[in-house]
């Protein structure tokens, strides 16, 4: 997590995905479905803990009508997406966006644990 990642310079919202341009000119595409599925909030994260519930979450997301989200920066460390359909609670750290761009598991293979719901 503390490994340094290049700076995100540009985020273009396209119909079904974002085109990300990093410092140095590298381009990446991340689909809106992938972004929604990787929501780091305390309600979505536990759903990715096991394959079955993760798949259910994925299907739910894929059945939503396509939309372009509103995107805003959060402090100096993250961005957030606002959807009409789908969860808008998550704050995506730049590390998380970088992981998604590189098709890495943004949860680092760790299941999400918290005290209670």
């Amino acid at each position: 997590m503390s490994e340094t990642i290049p700076e995100l310079k540009r985020l273009e919202r396209r119909d079904l995905d974002v085109l990300l341009t990093y410092d140095g000119g590298q381009n990446f595409i991340v689909t809106y479905d992938d972004i929604k599925h990787a929501c780091p909030c305390a309600k979505c994260s536990p759903q990715r803990n096991d394959d079955e519930s993760s798949k259910i979450l994925r299907r739910e997301i894929e059945s939503m009508p396509p939309e372009k989200p509103k995107v805003r920066t959060v402090g100096k460390y993250a961005i957030a997406f606002e959807w009409v359909n789908g969860c808008s609670s998550g704050i995506y750290r730049f590390e998380r966006i970088w992981a998604l761009a590189n098709k890495l598991d943004p949860d680092d293979g760790k299941s999400y644990v918290h005290g209670a719901w």
């Binding site: 995100l8 310079k9 540009r10 985020l11 410092d23 805003r72 920066t73 100096k76």
Partner: peptide, 12 residues
């Protein structure tokens, strides 16, 4: 706390 948040990022 964000101050002039991620100045470098252009969102389109």
């Amino acid at each position: 706390i964000g101050e002039s948040s991620s100045e470098g990022l252009e969102i389109i």
